[in-house]
Design a protein around this nucleic acid. Structure first.
Lengths: 294, 294
DNA sequence: CTGAAAGCGCTTACAG
DNA sequence: CTGAAAGCGCTTACAG
């Protein structure tokens, strides 16, 4: 009754804090929200506190936050690294006694465990599906080359085109942030510049939802006049109009596995330092159709 | 170089932690994300750490989190209280030395400072606008009676109908969670039950975006066949197709003012324990039109 | 088995 | 003005 346990004192004594940091670039992206939910469910009963950080790909924010975690003696950090994070930076965190598990993105030259979807294969599947419907003029919208996901997904798209003997057109590839607004703007910029793809592979569902809006704003009906695919299969994909053809990215798996690896590491178990790829799954809905001329 | 400042030790000694808790029901709602951004900007340079909690209107999660804040000796908490939070519960938090500032929602019988938009007036403006366009069959979708926002917004809708001499039909009022999915499902349920409003006032923009999708899924074009209004004016409202007529809810102001009140309180200043209402602004876009029969 | 003491890393009030 | 000591509230190793 009325007694308040002082965790700072306990932590000072035991050098364990019960804090786990979770660092992503955008909590508002339902993809991360779903990962977070899985992490919370997995760790929920262990009386731990989550310190959340939204770095928005600003490395200074990430660095500050990691410092804060070290100052509070956090037990570990689950991290989707910001653009510009070096392998040496991750090494330094680990050397300071803060275990690292990465999600979604990975960083070269560091061997900490990584859990993520197989981005290259997933976008390959989406692109191949459009090609199978008869498309040859396929654009790729969204994602930044500075991130591993941006590079991997673009590569999956390029691979699928190449296998089908379709020449890739750099003008048909617009990199951007992974937001609805970026999708909307990129789509309109693409059509304003005179390009007329018959199908569009989007970096993720948010971009795709912005693209659906952008198409409507210029009088095109997605799923009838033009095909659009998303990526992630967030819950919004199913209720989009038209319902979005997309690729499930295994966010629940990513969250659960990352949380387990974190717990095991904190408990002192030897966790294999490996990169785990979740197999993606194509989800066909209503936003895709054969090319209109066909 | 390599030295890590131990904030637990410092905090133990000074009994100040630099931690500020921020508690909302749904971080994924862009409305809260925008408030959060404003709070971060306002407090950004003060080297404070935010502990974020998503209570999803589960009072147990909120209580647990407040306990955690007390255990870590947090300096204050900015709170959108979960359904079921009593005035006595807020009193107890304050008595334990944790200053409280409320946002968005408020709790009766507690006098802690509150910053929020004027929900009743805002929805009144949206409803009145539809009435002015000639609508008389106006539905209200979304929001829960258990929350102050749910009650206030519904009351604004009812007041506007009454002033225009329109009888309110309980069947035309569907309460629900404030999500896209709830909007989508509620809209379809309403039409499945045979109701045919000519205009729909939504609890917030997320619900309205779900309603737009739901209307399309049953072959109706929002902004032409039926009028829809949102609430909040999140950034997505502008890029929705059609662009959403909505009411700006002052989220930046709410965040900024709440942060300032928190800082002032922590610095020992006397902060007036008052309820501050931000004046809403109607934003007319493309999702509204006169009734189709008119 | 029980209970008093030491010590985690800071800050601050106090002695020199 | 400088520097050693006390103490924040826990946990744990140790003495009785």
């Amino acid at each position: 009754m009325g007694y308040i346990y002082n965790r700072r004192a306990a932590s000072l004594r035991t050098s364990r804090s019960g804090i786990i940091g979770v660092v992503v670039h955008d909590i508002m992206n339902p993809f991360f929200a779903e990962i977070l939910k899985a992490i919370e469910e997995e760790l929920g009963h262990s009386r731990r506190t989550f310190l959340l950080c939204n770095h928005h790909d600003d490395i200074a924010i990430q660095t500050d936050f990691i410092d804060t975690l070290l100052q509070f003696g956090a037990d570990g950090v689950i991290l989707s690294p910001a653009i510009g994070t070096t392998g040496a930076a991750i090494d330094a965190i680990e050397k300071n006694g803060l275990p690292v598990v990465m999600i979604a993105r990975w960083v070269e030259e560091n061997s900490a465990p990584v859990f993520r979807g197989d981005d290259r294969q997933g976008i390959h599947m989406a692109t191949q599906y459009l090609i199978g419907l008869g498309h040859r003029d396929i654009a790729f919208i969204g994602g930044r080359r500075e991130t591993s996901t941006g590079r991997d997904r673009r590569q999956g798209y390029l691979n699928a085109l190449q296998e089908a003997g379709i020449a890739a057109d750099p003008a048909m590839q617009i990199g951007s942030e992974a937001t609805r607004k970026a999708g909307y703007d990129s789509l309109r910029a693409m059509f304003a510049s005179g390009l007329r793809p018959s199908g569009i592979v989007c970096f993720n569902d948010l971009v795709a939802i912005g693209v659906l809006s952008g198409l409507r704003s210029i009088g095109l009906e997605p799923g009838r006049d033009i095909a659009v695919t998303g990526y992630d299969d967030i819950s919004e994909a199913e209720i989009a109009a038209p319902a979005l053809t997309t690729v499930w990215n295994g966010q629940q798996e990513v969250g659960r596995l990352a949380a387990r690896a974190m717990i095991a590491t904190i408990s002192g178990e030897k966790v294999p330092r490996e990169k785990v790829l979740i197999a993606p799954q194509l989800r066909i809905r209503e936003s895709t159709c054969p090319p209109k001329e066909a």
